[in-house]
Amino acid sequence: MAGVLPFRQHSFLCRVKSPSPPFAKGGEGGFRHSIAALSCLLLLSLLALAAVTQRPAQAQTPHDEAEAQAIDRMLMCPVCPGETIDQSQVELARQMRLRVREMLAQGAGRQQVLDFFVARYGVEILAAPPKSGFNLVAWIFPALAVPLALAGGLLALRAMRRRPAAELAPVPGPDVGLDPFLARVDQELTVAAPSDVPRTGSSADG
């Protein structure tokens, strides 16, 4: 029936080794196939392109300003819980942003600016804990936990695989008198889904 045809074609597809132009394949199906693929590609590339067109424009912003904005996002505003000085509109945040720019203009580097504020406000001024000392714990946990979880998942999968697949293995229990029930299964499947009748042959019961 219908299921056989596409199969051939796919094995043909498989022989196309390089991931190069999808329209290399012949046949009406392949052609349509590639149209769909192309349109998808086109859309995505256009979108990405749109994002990228901003790149040359970014050069218009002085380098220091981009850097200052990056630093703004690493410093919390001390008087408003949960906001960085980039986000906050209070006076103190404005003054801190100003100080960041002054320091950069005087030639300070990113780390120096951060250190300056840590010395005055404590580490909690940093939006993320520093990757040193005890605070490494904050960073190590995800780095350890995630591979462990994935490894655990793989182990669990292996354990689930160890026994032979139950449904394909002979089910314990006698098969006496199964035929009438098999017939009923076929009948119910036919009634439930007329269009997708599974083809069942007499070879089915064992």
């Binding site: 394909l168 229990g173 199964l178 029930f181 299964v185 069942t200």
Partner: peptide, 12 residues
């Protein structure tokens, strides 16, 4: 193969 296994399971 799988269809037969499922049919048999349903019948059981």
């Amino acid at each position: 193969q799988q269809l037969d296994a499922y049919r048999r399971q349903a019948a059981l």
